[in-house]
Computed example of a mutant assay.
Amino acid sequence: MRITSEVAHSILVKLKKLVNYNINIMNSDGVIVGSTDSSRLHQIHQGALMVFDTKKAIFIYSEDEAHFTGAKPGVNLPIEIQQKIIGCIGVTGEPNDVIQFAQILKVTVEVMLQEMELFNQLQYENKLTEKWVLDFVHPTHFHASKLEADGLHYLNLNFEIKITILLIRFPDLLTSTKHQDMDEVVNSRKKKDERLHLLKTLLPSIVFASFLEDDNCIIAIPPTKNNYQTAADSIHTYFMNQGIKSKIGIGGSYNGIEGYRKSYVEACNSLKLLEKFPKTNGVAHISDWGIITLFQQVPEETLKGFYAQYLPEEVTLNEEQIHTLEVLYANALNMKVTAEELHIHRNTLLYRLDSISKKTGLDPKNFHDALLLRVLLVIKKLTFR
């Protein structure tokens, strides 16, 4: 790690609020790159050069000041990271008066620099992960061999291990790409970093995680029995308790780069279906959708053509009729339970179903017609916005 003017300045901003002494920070060339006395910036500090030569603390007393170019009376101590001297810190004053303070300051600065180095390392790793993930989720350019090689080299991914992809949507992070000022961009990035950190804390077993270029966050976890459901539920519950809405689509469990991609596509499809068929807990595994996922693969124009055969434009069901049918299907066509859940008399339910039959020519009390109506309702949600 190299001590630059930017690094020194960020340290001094924090320290000068706490102390009254003049503090200088010198880089490995003996140049003062940070000082609480701006007039001393960019000067060569002879005492710092001696620290590098001797690898020891240098004490400069008033009577010795003339022998040290660019220096004043004080204590100059080496800044050490991993047993390597990377800079020097000096405190102005008579050595006997400031030595204890200088020693405390040396340790404080070393800790701060180690924290900066760790943060920079984490940022670097996050950037590598983010770049790899963006290539991994690209809708058209999926280069399996390159992704696998890069994943092994940069992220140490073991593609023999099965993973499950969770795709989390945070609606509050969705911002317009137009007219965004720098503050909005920085604030959005900060929120994403904070949530990514929280997710990694909630799920220590995460294989990789990153935000995409929108409000979606991708997480890969190794599957164990019910692990994906437990993980998704804990994420959703945690953020809900924080007043943050989320929806989570879950893919299947596969190994290999092609399998990882398949899990991601399934998580995407599950999340899309959650938007059209909301669930109270906001979490859905691809297997939860059953035959609906099959309809999702059919071209939209084909679905619309099928829908029009039975329900042309002039035939429309109102919200009450649609809700009645949905509750009926949710209760396996059980009239008694459906009426109870709708809080209506059974005769009222029969009246509603008869009105649907007259309007559509399909009788919901008949199994085959009920099945067809169910399919038509699914198609309507999938294709009509």
Rank of each mutant, 00 (worst) to 15 (best):
I3Q: 04
I11P: 02
N24I: 04
N27M: 06
S28P: 02
I32H: 01
R40I: 04
R40M: 08
L41H: 05
I44G: 05
H45Y: 11
H45R: 08
G47R: 01
G47Q: 02
L49Q: 03
L49S: 03
M50G: 01
M50Y: 07
F59C: 05
S62P: 05
E65R: 11
A66T: 13
H67W: 11
F68G: 07
K72E: 09
E80S: 15
I81T: 08
Q82W: 12
Q83D: 14
G90N: 00
P95I: 07
N96Q: 14
D97H: 12
V98Q: 01
V98W: 00
I99T: 12
Q100G: 13
L105G: 02
K106W: 03
V111L: 13
E115R: 11
L118N: 10
L122F: 08
N126P: 02
N126F: 06
T129P: 03
K131R: 14
W132F: 09
V133S: 00
V133N: 00
L134G: 05
D135N: 13
H138D: 15
A149K: 15
D150P: 06
L155K: 01
E160A: 12
K162F: 07
T164F: 04
L167Q: 02
L167D: 02
I168G: 01
P171T: 13
P171I: 13
L174Q: 12
K178D: 14
H179K: 11
Q180V: 11
M182C: 10
M182P: 05
D183Q: 14
V186M: 11
N187F: 14
N187R: 14
K192I: 10
K192E: 12
K192W: 10
D193K: 05
T201A: 15
T201S: 15
T201Q: 15
L202A: 08
L202K: 06
I206R: 02
F208G: 02
F211V: 06
N216R: 10
N216L: 06
I218W: 01
N227W: 07
Y228H: 14
T230Y: 12
S234Y: 09
T237Y: 07
F239W: 03
N241D: 14
I248Y: 01
I248F: 00
G252D: 09
G256H: 08
I257S: 01
R261N: 12
V265P: 00
E266G: 01
A267L: 04
A267H: 01
K276M: 07
T280S: 14
N281D: 15
V283M: 04
V283L: 03
H285D: 09
I292C: 03
L294I: 09
L294G: 05
L294Y: 09
E301I: 15
L303G: 01
F306Q: 04
Q309P: 07
P312C: 09
E314T: 13
V315W: 06
V315I: 15
V315F: 07
V315L: 08
E320W: 07
H323D: 10
H323M: 11
T324P: 01
L325C: 04
V327D: 05
N334K: 06
M335A: 05
K336W: 05
I344T: 09
I344G: 04
I344W: 05
I356W: 01
T360L: 06
L362D: 00
L362E: 00
K365L: 15
L371N: 04
L373F: 03
R374P: 03
K381V: 04
L382I: 03
L382F: 00
F384E: 10
R385K: 15
